[in-house]
Design a protein around this nucleic acid. Structure first.
Lengths: 201, 201
DNA sequence: ACCTGGGGATGACACCTGTCACGAGTCGCG
DNA sequence: CGCGACTCGTGACAGGTGTCATCCCCAGGT
């Protein structure tokens, strides 16, 4: 019997996934959490074998939770289950120690198999996604450019970004200009969206 | 036995919801679709009593699908099940003939009850959401402002928006300026995000 | 010691944006 | 009819933005 932990911030989705997986005779859901920072504790207390982690959660992201799990509970395997198949996410998930990566577009019947493969020590990655991840390659953005772009995501004016990053407006504009060039965009808004869609932020 | 149709673009969520609802002895899922424009046909063929509709779907939105259902199959009731509890969505959902509105944050065990209430002819709306919907009020934006703002959502420059809307750049800037004023924003990007968060787009 | 690359900053320039004033056409309503 | 609301447009202006050249400092390689 494989013991599962579910982490997803949407209670309805969490409960529904639990119902789906509990239908399988060899799987049982032993814990459910709605925040990333509750994953490790719940996994320890429940004695889970495999953790299904959504990426976008309050507290900690699923990627960060996977990293914590690897260091705190090395015997527990993580399977990322997320809405967004951003190329950069796959690489970061595997770097963070996740054993699998599944998008919520995949057919429901395949999820249980993915869980079993992960539990068996195999890596599970959507082949289409894996290809995209290789095509897109790693982020060409420097650390600072990434940070500035993230602050520019909501369309804030340069002055606001500069204050938030403790930089001069000129420097911010230089970093943005560089990021715009690297993403092939023509405005910072477009650059930010491109970078996000590639999972670089 | 209440016959259900599920419409959600994420196959995994769709399948999981089906598993959850099929656990109830008085409910049965008779159809599943991943696109808004397949809802009416599937509902007709399957003889569904209640349709659970996600809002964000390819083809047609859940709100548009609900409107079509009301005119084509008046006996079928719609229950909107969505991620976003945007105030404007609730009003538009009820205007579109939906019998209920539930966000994906609600506990899983409440969903079946919501379905039963809707089937019984009652209206089901999250009370917190209903209050927010009344507070926010209707959209203050004119038709054109709404359209222009929607085009500005992705941060396109004025020139691009003007071409897309077949308008002069000056007119676009005027509409945007007006929308910025009405939303209390200071850039078109911020205005667009505010309007979207209120469900005005 | 030298070169390279990232980070930080400045100043200048062309261009884009947000705002305002103003005008003109259409439509519905009292 | 007159009025108001919406739409479309122009022109002008201040301020924000993107680009570029040019510095400085510092950490790693060679």
């Amino acid at each position: 019997m494989i013991r599962l932990l579910l982490a997803d911030d949407q209670a309805l989705v969490r409960g529904a996934l639990a119902a789906l997986l509990d239908l399988e005779s060899d799987l049982t859901v032993v814990a459910q959490v709605g925040r990333g920072d509750e994953v490790v504790e719940a996994a320890r207390e429940s004695g889970a074998d495999v953790c299904l982690l959504d990426i976008e959660m309050p507290g900690l992201t699923g990627l960060e939770a996977a990293e914590l799990l690897r260091s705190e509970l090395p015997g527990v395997r993580s399977l990322i289950v997320t809405t967004f198949g951003r190329p950069g996410y796959v690489r970061r998930a595997l770097d963070a120690g996740a054993a699998g990566f599944v998008v919520k577009d995949t057919p429901a019947r395949e999820l249980a198999d993915a869980v079993r493969r992960v539990h068996a020590g195999l890596r599970v990655v959507d082949p289409t996604l894996a290809a995209e991840s290789l095509m897109a390659g790693p982020s060409p953005l420097t650390a600072r450019e990434t940070e500035i772009l993230r602050l520019a995501l909501d369309g804030s004016p340069v002055a606001t970004i500069a204050r938030a990053a403790h930089l001069s407006q000129g420097t911010v504009r230089n970093h943005l200009s560089s990021a715009i060039g690297k993403t092939g965009a023509s405005t910072r808004g477009e650059a930010a969206r491109i970078a996000q869609s590639r999972g670089w932020l």
